[in-house]
Simulated assay, not measured.
Amino acid sequence: MTAPPAHPRTVVVTNDFPPRSGGIETYVAALLARLDPDRLVVHACAPDGGGPGLREAAEHDARLPFRVVRDPDRTLLPSPALAARVRRTVSAAAAEAVWFPSAAPLGLLGHAVRTAGVRRVVASAHGHEVWWARVPGSRAALRRLGDAVDVVTFDSAVVRRPIATALSLAARARTAQLRPGVDATRFRATERTGWRAPGAPVVLCLSRAVPRKGHGRLLAVWPEVRRRHPGARLLLAGGGPLVPRLRARAAQVPGAEVLGRVPDADLPGLYAAADVFVLPVADRLGGLVTESLGIVLLEAAAAGLPVVAGRAGGTVEAVLDDRTGVLLDARDPAALAAAVVDLLDDPGRAAAMGAAGASWVRRAWDWDVTAQRLAALLSGEPVPRWG
């Protein structure tokens, strides 16, 4: 990791902060770890889980090199009360910049934080802003948001296109790419222990357990995969609201196991145990709910795994079709089963895809580069032309 880039005193206002887990939380944590901790304060939502959640959050925050202010609300919404609390945090930190890692809805506080002396406001859009751009009421709110901040960033061009149509021409000209990265060294293949049994190929799906991610679609086709590879194991990992339901279903599916949330420190070993990574994501509600990019797809590639992914939103930028993996319509059970079976049938092809993915991630997806770009945007440097 390089030295922290220079940036102004910055307050980060977010609902997406560990110990909560998910793609945006990974994105936020990775970038904050690369900024100057002495010029950084995080104003985060209250943790989930009552007393145990409070203890976990307190232990997590105490290990960080920057200050964390925990708001009393478990979900931060742009209300006058929240605006007042954030302004107090900004004033106490003598902050000159604010970053909203999830643009909607908190970016609507852009005008409010300026009254506390903030000169630069950056908001980062992900996949969930797509539906904001396509529903009349929220589309108008998204336009106001774009005018309230100095820069709107996007992690993928696919997601930028529908969101940018909701912005004013002035705000659209102030958009920039802030793509995620991967610590390729951390996810480089390690010894296959723990979750692996001798002679049994492992298929891994790691993601937050919500409907669009497709854990249930993979469970549905697993019997067909097992018919061709009787000893194969399916590991479904990640926390989320569907975990109890998935566990009940998996109990009836031979060779399938739902791990639930896996500690971050154990993720490299989990990837190393697998032969194929699958994320059968699909758009929902006619494309209103889509995938922004899929950091887990890049992590799997960095670990040397071939990737099977649904063609949805930004996944087309995280997987090079037929080079680092396979893109498909994950709602097609036959296609999904065939893609997994084909990679298990042909270890040479799978290894070649995994090697290509690891090489590509090392070249093209660098957190340090992204952190430098975020610091420049917070500092007020001109917004670079999109792309």
Rank of each mutant, 00 (worst) to 15 (best):
A3T: 15
P4L: 06
A6F: 14
V12G: 04
T14N: 09
F17L: 13
R20H: 14
G22W: 02
I24N: 05
T26P: 12
T26L: 14
A29C: 10
A33P: 04
R34D: 01
L35Y: 03
R39Y: 04
V41K: 00
V41Q: 00
V42D: 00
H43W: 02
P47W: 00
P47I: 00
G50I: 02
G51H: 04
G51A: 12
E56T: 03
E56H: 09
A57G: 02
D61C: 04
L64N: 01
R70N: 06
D71G: 03
D71L: 02
L77R: 10
P80K: 08
V86F: 07
V86E: 03
T89L: 05
V90L: 06
A94V: 13
P101A: 09
A104F: 14
P105K: 09
G107A: 13
G110Y: 10
V113P: 13
A116H: 08
V118N: 00
V118G: 03
R119W: 08
V121G: 04
A123E: 01
A123S: 05
H126R: 06
W132Q: 09
A133W: 00
G137P: 13
G137T: 13
S138L: 14
D147Y: 11
D147S: 14
A148P: 02
V151C: 04
V151E: 00
V152F: 06
D155R: 13
A157Q: 14
P162F: 14
P162R: 13
I163P: 05
T165E: 15
L169D: 15
Q177D: 13
R179E: 13
G181Y: 02
D183V: 03
D183T: 05
A184D: 11
R188G: 12
T190R: 15
T193H: 11
G194H: 12
R196W: 12
A197H: 13
A197C: 13
P198A: 14
A209L: 15
V210F: 10
R212D: 13
R217A: 12
R217W: 05
R217P: 09
L219K: 04
A220V: 07
V221Y: 06
P223W: 11
E224S: 14
E224D: 14
R226W: 00
G238V: 05
R245L: 15
R247H: 10
R247C: 09
A250M: 04
A251K: 08
A251M: 09
P254F: 15
R261V: 11
V262G: 06
V262P: 05
P268K: 07
Y271C: 12
Y271M: 08
A273Q: 04
D275T: 04
A282H: 14
D283V: 10
G286F: 03
S292D: 11
P306Y: 09
V308Y: 00
V308E: 02
A309E: 04
G310F: 00
G313V: 06
A318D: 12
L320Y: 10
R323I: 14
R323A: 15
G325E: 09
L327V: 06
A330E: 05
A330I: 11
R331P: 12
D332V: 08
D332F: 04
A339P: 03
V341D: 02
A350C: 11
A351V: 07
A351E: 11
A358D: 10
S359A: 15
W360V: 08
V361D: 02
R363V: 11
T370L: 12
L374Y: 01
A375I: 02
